[in-house]
Design a protein around this nucleic acid. Sequence first.
DNA 1: TTGAAAGCGCTAACAC
DNA 2: GTGTTAGCGCTTTCAA
Lengths: 341, 341
Amino acid sequence: MTTRDSGAHREPTRNDVARLAGVSTAVVSYVVNDGPRPVAAATRARVLDAIDKLGYRPNTAARSLITGRSGLVGLIVPDVENPYFAALAKAVEIAAAARGVRLVLGQSLSGGFLELLDSLAGHQVDGILTATLPPAAFLTDHWIGRVPLVVVSLALSASPVPVLYPDYRAGARTGVGHLVEVHGRRTVALVTGSDGMDEREIGWREALAVSGLSPGPIVRIPWSAQGGAQGADELADRHPEVDAIFVTSDQQAVGLLAGLHRRGRRVPDDLAVVSFDGSLAGEFTIPGLTTVAVPFADLAVAALDALVADLPQDRVFPLGLVVRESCGCGRDGGQSTASTR
Amino acid sequence: MTTRDSGAHREPTRNDVARLAGVSTAVVSYVVNDGPRPVAAATRARVLDAIDKLGYRPNTAARSLITGRSGLVGLIVPDVENPYFAALAKAVEIAAAARGVRLVLGQSLSGGFLELLDSLAGHQVDGILTATLPPAAFLTDHWIGRVPLVVVSLALSASPVPVLYPDYRAGARTGVGHLVEVHGRRTVALVTGSDGMDEREIGWREALAVSGLSPGPIVRIPWSAQGGAQGADELADRHPEVDAIFVTSDQQAVGLLAGLHRRGRRVPDDLAVVSFDGSLAGEFTIPGLTTVAVPFADLAVAALDALVADLPQDRVFPLGLVVRESCGCGRDGGQSTASTR
DNA sequence: TTGAAAGCGCTAACAC
DNA sequence: GTGTTAGCGCTTTCAA
């Protein structure tokens, strides 16, 4: 019933393989790593055979000790259960797997950010992706020159490490523009998780300004569905004039939709809603959530590239608009897409 | 702007620390590991000081080479973006972090299960938790005696490795029982992702039998929100007599709710719905989803225990009922809980 | 209480 | 094409 027979099965090593194949250990390495020296076909076959017989599996810890590379990358997110970070983690894991790299996951909710970094670095990860904002002082003082670090999905300016993120500003413009131009909404509220002016807020202002509209009310709430529900209450109570809402995350939108429903405000008839993320959370809401979609896969691939190639440049990614019903588009509007402008 | 100055900063090693502190490398180990030999307070202070000055961080790969333990555990899930597995991954990461262990995440969607296992084992993980069902032959033939493996959240019988899972059967009984006993529903359909009789189906049958009811229709759909929407169509089209639904996952329930809404069936008035999981997905649906809740945290802690202690026993965990509105309980029913019977 | 040294499994010169 | 061998950074036995 138990899994480990405590030592009964010592894992076979390169030595065992060499012995069984009747070759030197170096040759085993050459075969396993496909280099750096050539190996005769017959020899290679013998080695492969021995590997198979023994069930030999290279010890990456030992390899890592020499090469300095572990084939591990760290990903730090606040909370994987959050649909946004779940989508990100999924994409990063896929991109990493495609490179033969494994993902070490760390949640910043379960420990200090710095401890997490140290722990990951101690495990010899080849690099760390963080979607949690590192302490500002930390970035400049402590980390430079250590494990490659890339900040992903956070719009940091003047960062000492590479930063890759969706174009929050253009994305917000797209979403709000849709509300205004396609659906003719005039008073677009912003329901945001940010506690200060951020890129999405700027985009929201810009889209409104382009159409000669002034900004609607701003409702600041936590980055959660719960927060969205609060936002619905605040809007219903204090801003009856609002005819559309741009909300900064799908998760907040889910709570917002539920809250508006409870308050008897109909979406999209009374209030049109456009959200931000393109996560699974908004796929089957009632009504379906129109959302500005982050290109998770592209972001993940590029972030990993930045990590392994150690590319210095920041990158910004264009977003698409996933049109469902909450904006006022009919069911037949389907899931069409328009990219950010 | 870049992170790594290519060799400019060699990571300090135990040797550097020893030299700076004027002690032998062994002493550094004693200090770092707090054993196995005692160290004089003054010496320890010098070592600690040197560690701090140098920013020394033990290389776990090297340590792992000797000790055979890496401080890494693998977690295999089909897809982290799925709210159920996201909840599981979150709980496991938290439980692991509490033990000073890091989580290596593998998604079985992005590669073969066996390759994933081999890859994780190659990285010297101390054990592997899998929420993806391993190939049956594999479990018996290939793995025993290798890295400790624990199957989590899958009800396998007669497994050669430890299996930990929520009590699907009793959980289903609780959910269906609530529909029947509290809300007096008589025709309870089962909307399930399983393609054969599973524990949840048995529980559903049992709960119905207890009340002298015969099983309602069974609708088999994929484990996705999309699948739930299909289920709603099938129910609306072919089973108008149904007055309640027990659905096997929150994610399916989300799609089901949306589908029923689209078809004009009111929940809970026309149809009461109880789901299974207790994930975030059902928290802000319209109406709020009543769901049988998996104790993710307990499961995660126990699974890790099983892994490190190499405990042979299977374990089954009781579930609670999170009561919201989809079952017919009023809003004031609140989020009360009842445990599985 | 401290130090010297063997060696964990592997890679990659370097020699043949 | 293949073999020999010096370490990678670390733990731990054994001796001092």
